[in-house]
C-alpha cells in the first residue's frame, strides 16, 4: 500500500493518472450540473414564499458548500505537506486556492443577488456573511503568499501554515447561523436530520452540489498538473510530453 502511495506522489505518475481521469470527471460534472440547473430553473416548482427568486439556491448553496469543502481539502493538503514534506500535497494546496476563492466569490455574489429581492438588502454584517467574507480573504491570502515567494517549496510551506491556521474559520462559517442570531437563515440540506425542502426541489439541488464539487475536482486536477509541469520543467518526462502532444 505504501509503495502505491509513493508512486502516486511521483509527478509523472500522477500527471498521467490525472490526464486519464480528468476528462471523465469533467463530463460527469457537466451532466450533473446540467441536470441540477435545468431541473432547478425549469422543472422545480416555485417556492410558496419566495416564488422564483428561490431558484438562486441552485447556484448559491452548491458554491457555498464547495467553498467550505475546498478549504478543508486545502488545509488537509497543507498538513500533509508540512508533516510529510510531500510535493504533490503542496501542488494540491496551491491548486485548490484559486478554485476555492472563485467559489467563495460565487457564493457571496449570488447571495447578494438573492438578498436584495428577498431580505431587502445586498449585504449585512451578520455572522454568516462576515465569516464567508473572511473565508475569501483566507483564500486570497494563500494565493498572494505563494506568489510572494520565489522558491515554490518555501512558498507552499508558508501557505500550508496559513491554510491550517485558517481552518478554524470553516466550522465558524458552517455553524454561524446556529451559534449566533443572524439575518441569514439556518441550513436547509447541509445538516443532520431531515432536509427542510420539498423532494422535487431537493433532487436538482443535490445534483447541482455534486456537479459543482466534481467540476471543482476537475479544475483542481488540471491546476495540479500545471503545477507539476511548471516545477518539473526541463526534466525528461515533461520534454517527452511536449513531443508526444503536438497541437496542445
Amino acid at each position: 500500500m505504501w509503495t502505491w502511495f509513493h508512486r502516486l506522489a511521483s509527478p509523472p505518475f500522477f500527471f498521467r493518472l490525472a490526464e486519464r481521469w480528468a476528462p471523465w470527471l469533467g463530463v460527469a460534472a457537466l451532466v450533473l450540473l446540467a441536470w441540477g440547473w435545468i431541473g432547478g430553473l425549469v422543472f422545480a416548482p416555485p417556492d410558496y414564499q419566495q416564488k422564483d427568486a428561490f431558484r438562486i439556491i441552485y447556484v448559491h448553496v452548491p458554491a457555498a458548500a464547495v467553498s467550505l469543502s475546498l478549504y478543508t481539502l486545502m488545509a488537509l493538503a497543507g498538513a500533509v505537506a508540512v508533516i510529510w514534506r510531500m510535493k504533490l500535497a503542496e501542488c494540491v494546496l496551491v491548486a485548490t486556492a484559486p478554485v476555492g476563492a472563485s467559489m467563495t466569490v460565487v457564493a457571496l455574489v449570488t447571495g447578494m443577488l438573492w438578498g436584495k429581492p428577498m431580505w431587502g438588502t445586498y449585504w449585512v454584517w451578520d455572522a454568516r456573511l462576515t465569516s464567508e467574507l473572511v473565508l475569501l480573504f483566507l483564500y486570497l491570502g494563500v494565493i498572494g503568499l505563494y506568489r510572494a515567494f520565489d522558491d515554490p517549496r518555501a512558498g507552499a510551506r508558508a501557505c500550508a501554515l496559513l491554510a491550517i491556521v485558517g481552518v478554524v474559520n470553516v466550522p465558524i462559517v458552517k455553524y454561524s447561523v446556529e451559534w449566533w442570531n443572524s439575518l441569514h437563515q439556518g441550513s436547509t440540506i447541509m445538516k443532520l436530520g431531515k432536509p427542510s425542502i420539498a423532494l422535487e426541489m431537493a433532487i436538482p439541488l443535490y445534483a447541482a452540489v455534486a456537479g459543482t464539487l466534481l467540476f471543482c475536482g476537475y479544475a483542481i486536477l488540471r491546476r495540479v498538473q500545471n503545477e507539476l509541469l511548471w516545477r518539473e520543467r526541463g526534466t525528461q518526462w515533461v520534454r517527452e510530453l511536449r513531443v508526444g502532444e503536438p497541437g496542445r
Binding site: 428561490f54 437563515q185 420539498a198
Partner: peptide, 10 residues
Amino acid sequence: LAKHDENYMP
C-alpha cells in the same frame, strides 16, 4: 429587512 426561514416547498 425580511428574514425568511430555511424551508422551501411548492
